[in-house]
Amino acid sequence: SQVHIGNTTFTFDNPEKAQKYAEKYAKKKGLTVQKNGDVWTVE
C-alpha cells in the first residue's frame, strides 16, 4: 500500500496504516485523500 503526498511516496505493509496516515496528514494540512486501489493520494 502506498501514500502519495506531492512528489513523495510512502510505502506501508498494511493498507489500514496507509489509510490512517493519509487521512491524518490530510486533516492536518486541510487537504483531501483520493483512493485508487491500494494507493492513497493526498492533494
Rank of each mutant, 00 (worst) to 15 (best):
N7M: 10
G37E: 06
N14P: 01
F12C: 02
K20T: 09
K35S: 05
E43W: 07
T9M: 13
L31K: 03
Y25P: 01
T41F: 14
L31A: 05
K27T: 07
Q19T: 03
K20W: 11
K17H: 12
A22P: 00
W40K: 01
N36C: 13
F10S: 05
G37M: 02
K20C: 13
E16W: 09
V3W: 00
N14M: 06
G6C: 15
T9D: 06
A26H: 02
Y25S: 03
V33Q: 01
Q2P: 03
Q19E: 11
T11D: 08
W40M: 02
Q2H: 12
K27F: 07
E23H: 05
Q2R: 13
A26K: 02
Q2L: 12
V3L: 05
A26F: 04
G37L: 03
P15W: 07
K28R: 09
V33P: 04
V33R: 02
F12H: 02
E23P: 00
Y21W: 14
Q2V: 14
K24V: 10
E43N: 09
G6E: 09
F12V: 02
A22C: 06
I5H: 03
I5D: 01
K17C: 15
T8S: 11
Q34T: 14
T32P: 04
E43V: 14
T11C: 15
A18K: 00
Y21N: 00
E16Q: 09
A18G: 01
N14K: 05
N36W: 09
T32K: 11
S1P: 13
H4M: 13
S1G: 12
N36R: 11
W40S: 01
A26E: 02
K29C: 15
N14T: 15
T32V: 11
V42R: 00
K27S: 09
S1F: 15
P15F: 07
T8Q: 14
A18M: 00
A26C: 06
Y21I: 06
E43H: 12
E23L: 12
E23M: 07
V42G: 00
K27Q: 10
E43F: 13
K28L: 13
W40Y: 10
K27P: 03
V39I: 13
F10D: 02
A18Y: 00
K35A: 05
D13R: 04
E23Q: 06
K17A: 15
N7Y: 11
K35G: 03
F10E: 04
Q2M: 14
K28C: 15
T11K: 09
V39G: 12
E16S: 10
Q34K: 13
G30P: 01
K17G: 07
K24F: 13
T9K: 12
I5E: 00
Y25Q: 05
T8C: 15
A22E: 02
F10M: 12
F10L: 14
F12D: 05
G30E: 01
K24L: 11
K28P: 04
N14W: 04
A26R: 01
A26W: 03
G37A: 04
A26S: 04
V42W: 04
G6M: 08
I5K: 03
K17E: 15
K28D: 12
Q19V: 04
Y25F: 09
E43P: 05
N14A: 09
W40A: 03
P15K: 05
T9A: 06
I5F: 06
V42L: 07
F10Q: 07
G6L: 09
T9H: 13
K35Y: 10
F12E: 04
Q34D: 05
Y21F: 15
V39L: 06
N7H: 13
N36M: 14
P15R: 03
Y25G: 01
Q2G: 05
Q2C: 14
P15D: 10
K29V: 08
N7A: 08
D38Y: 08
V42T: 03
S1T: 12
N36P: 02
F10P: 04
N36Q: 13
L31F: 13
T32N: 09
K27A: 11
V39F: 08
W40C: 02
V39R: 05
A18W: 01
N7E: 09
K24D: 15
Q34C: 14
Q19C: 10
V42P: 00
T9P: 01
L31R: 01
V33M: 09
W40N: 02
G37Q: 03
D13Q: 11
I5L: 05
K24Y: 14
W40I: 05
T41E: 12
K29A: 10
K29W: 15
N36Y: 11
W40R: 03
T8W: 15
W40H: 03
D38Q: 06
K27E: 11
D13W: 13
